[in-house]
Amino acid sequence: MALKERINLPGEARTWYGELPVQSLYTAGDAGDRFLKTLKEKDQFMGSPCTACGEVYVPPKLYCEKCMAELKDWIKVGPDGALESWTEVHVGLDGKRLAQAQLVGLIRLDGATTSMVHLLAGAEPNDLCIGMRMTPVMKPAAKREGAITDILHFRPK
């Protein structure tokens, strides 16, 4: 240490506790709002194609990430899709071990060129393989709140 004075006694090395008290309320945005409402009210997955790039974004976007064009069209996609990758998560948000490991997957809905991240259920890790057909399991209509968690999980079809 380039300091002239140091801490020499272990008891002097102490910490000061604090936090970032951040509570946030996020809007889903122009495109997200419409996507989540359609899913909630009509059980329908929507995607937004970019005619220039050929991408079909699911969830849909207001703009194309690649060429920045405005995406005006909306098309129906899914609800089934193919598994692009998966993992089994053993630690929680607090960094502690989970009592029950959680399967997570990347699912490319039929008609989309992008993949959604969601929870997987109804399968063991050994049953899963890339390319496997998956289908969403939705919350009962009355309990939906216009959030991505209106989809409970995806399961093998």
């Binding site: 910490t15 506790y17 604090g18 008290p21």
Partner: peptide, 30 residues
Amino acid sequence: FKHGKVCTTRWTADARYAWDRGVAIGRYLD
């Protein structure tokens, strides 16, 4: 917002710290 006309999500950050006081501030606090 109140009447749920827009879709929203909420999040409370779990961002806690124990900053080392160090030499100068440590002795100041002592």
